[in-house]
Structures are given as C-alpha cells and as structure tokens.
Design a protein around this nucleic acid. Structure first.
Lengths: 195, 195
DNA sequence: CAACAAACGGAATCGTGTTCCACTTTATAT
DNA sequence: ATATAAAGTGGAACACGATTCCGTTTGTTG
C-alpha cells in the first residue's frame, strides 16, 4: 500500500513520503480536498511522478493522513466501554466520530461523493469503525438502555453523513443532529416511515 | 435565470431548452450527474455553446430538472396537514423528501459536495423546503406530539444528508435512518452529546 | 422582404489528471 | 573504494472535459 514506515524503503523515498504527507495536509486544509496534485507535489518539492508513485490515488493520500486518527478512534471505543456506562460510552464515542469528520475539511463530502476515485476511502473508514460501533451498540442494548433492532451499519452511515457540517465548521449543528439520532435509539414503539 | 417558459423567447430557443432538459435527464440518470456537458449537448442535437447559453452552470440544469418536483413537495405539505394528524403528516412528508433525493441519482452527493459549482443547488432546495417543514414541525409540536426544541433547519439538513442512499438505490436504508431521526423527535429527557 | 437582434455551433483555449521513461540516487557486493 | 543493480525521481507529454469566443444562421418585426 503506502506510507509503510517499516520494510526496505530507500532513505530518499521515505523522506519524500513524509514531505508529501505534510504538504498534502497543508494544501488540503488550505484549498480543500480537490486541490490539484501538482500543487501538492510542488509544495513537497517533488515531481508529480513521485507523488503518483507513492499515492496512486488521491484517496490513498487522504487515507494515509487520517489513518492515525481512525485507529485512535478504534482504540478509544475500548477505553470508553470500560470507563463509562454503556449509554454514555456510545454517545461520547459518536461525538468523537463527529469531531473527526467535521474537523477535516472536505473529508465528509469525499466520503459520500460516490465518485469511484474515492471509493476506497469510505470502505476503509467504514470498515474500521463498524466493529467498535457494533460493540458499543451491543453493550448498550444488553444493558437494556436502547433498542436492539438498530443496525450498526445504518447508524454509522447516518452519523458519517450527518456529521459533515453544512456551513464551514458548524460542528455544533452536526452534534445536535447526532444527538437527535441517539435520542431515536431509545426504546419506543417506533412508527416506521410510510412507503 | 433559466428555463423561463414565459416572456419573449425565440421559438428555436425554447425548443432547444426543452431538448436539453430532456437530454440532461436521460444522461444524468444514465451516466450520473457528472456526465460530460458535450454528451448532453450532443444528445440534444445542439452545440455546447447553446447549452452554456441557457444553463451557464451545471447546477442550473439540475435545478431546472428538479424544480418541478420540489414545488410539488412544497404543495404536498399543505395537503398533508389538512388530511392527516400532525405526526403522520410530518412522517409522510419526510418520506416524500427521501424519495426525491434518493431517486434522482447523484442529486444527494451534489447537494453536499461543498463544491462551489453546486452551491446554488442546496441553497435552492433548502430554501424551498424549509418553510413547509417548519410548518409541519410547528403543527406537530402544537399538538404536543413532538418536542418543540428541534430546529427545522437542523432537521432538514440531517434528512437531506441521510436520504442519500449509500449503495445505489438503497432507499430502504435511507428510510430506516430517517425513521430513527423522527423517533428522536418525540419527547424525552434528551441527553445532549458531550463536547 | 429587408434589417436587426437573438440564438447557434463548434473550434480553440485552458486547467488538471495520469502515464511514461531516460536519468539519478541509494544500497550492496566485491 | 568502486562497480553494478535496483529503486526511485522528475517533468514533459498526453488525455479529457470545462468554458469561452466569435463568425454564421435563424427567427422576428415592421
């Protein structure tokens, strides 16, 4: 894949990868996630060829940037169930998810663009976060705090979508909406939508 | 603006506008909302210049296509409050909103792309739908069926986002998630998300 | 049926993504 | 040290779609 800090990588290659990631982070948050590849390569003091060698797809670059944070989120789930009651653990963790998506400018749209170029991104994020969420949901359901008929995939999807702030950086709105979703998790004779 | 069927428009111009709209509808649902402009112009038997003359931005084309349906949605709200109890009216109307967004392939992503080229689209859809929703919410809140502290803008935003189906045409998931949102509207000592 | 304005078409321009390969740098063996 | 192979680099070249521009055509009006 990419960004491997482990095996057999020439010194200059590793240096360039670092420079590219740093440049990409800066350019993305400056110009948005669709910034020209050339711009990133230039900023890193590297040719486009080098950029494409290490990150064949734009989503690989984004993925490399957020991987650390997604992994942190996965671990956070374990800490939360141990240290809080199930309902609070779930709510808190979802709040962290919102922070991640809402904070990285353009990440939200990229996750749901439907564009083939980004396909591996949602797959990665979704795949990484679905297990912790499933665990948190099961835990809360087992404690009879919430309904047990909510699919983790559905919920994760909804949260990831809702988390994308409407106007630049309106994280508060995103949180209110996720709170509404969470509120909907509680027991109630649920009226399904008419079709 | 565009698509004016009213004043002082040469006969060939009106004919071409019709042809373009029909072609765009076909091409969009066939190739997605990012289909090349040339393709649409060709299909309409018209030069690209003509396409750009009538629809300077891609979003103008999309807007013209969905305008009819959005307007229908606005009217439907009035019928629903008259013919159903407030809770059902709200739920049913939201279901119609989901149908609109989920059905038009690519409309969802376009609404939330954050791309400046599409900015006028969300503005238009949001602006048109916010009033009916506000009315429906107020009506249900007045009947003490739901909480009265939910902002219509928040909810509309959330519904529009959630309505975008994850996988091609998975309207069912979208409806389940909107149902969860609706469920969250009911009275309850609501626990806000931690920040 | 002029004469004029409106509308048309498509070649030309521009910006960006992506590929390709001759050249350079690094690692390794002797 | 030095030679050699392998890995990595840079950027010109190409592909493709958006958008503009303007000479030509068509509809309208009196």
């Amino acid at each position: 894949m990419t960004g491997r800090s482990s095996t057999s990588l020439r010194a200059d290659a590793r240096r360039n990868i670092d420079a590219l990631l740093q440049a990409a982070l800066a350019v993305f948050s400056d110009q948005g996630i669709d910034a020209p590849m050339r711009t990133i390569a230039n900023r890193a003091g590297v040719g486009v060829g080098t950029l494409y060698r290490h990150f064949p797809q734009r989503s690989d670059l984004i993925k490399a940037i957020i991987r650390r944070e997604v992994e942190a989120l996965v671990e956070a789930a374990n800490d939360l169930v141990e240290q809080h009651e199930p309902g609070a653990a779930l709510a808190t963790w979802l709040s962290l998810v919102v922070d991640l998506v809402a904070t990285k400018r353009g990440l939200g749209p990229a996750l749901h663009s439907g564009d083939a170029a980004y396909q591996s991104l949602p797959d990665y994020v979704f795949g990484a976060l679905i297990h912790p969420l499933h665990m948190l949901l099961a835990s809360a359901a087992a404690a009879n705090i919430i309904r047990s008929d909510v699919d983790a995939g559905d919920l994760l999807n909804a949260v990831l979508r809702v988390a994308t702030p409407a106007s630049e950086g309106d994280v508060a709105q995103a949180k209110r909406m996720v709170a509404l979703l969470v509120n909907g998790l509680y027991h109630r004779p649920n009226a399904a939508l008419p079709s």
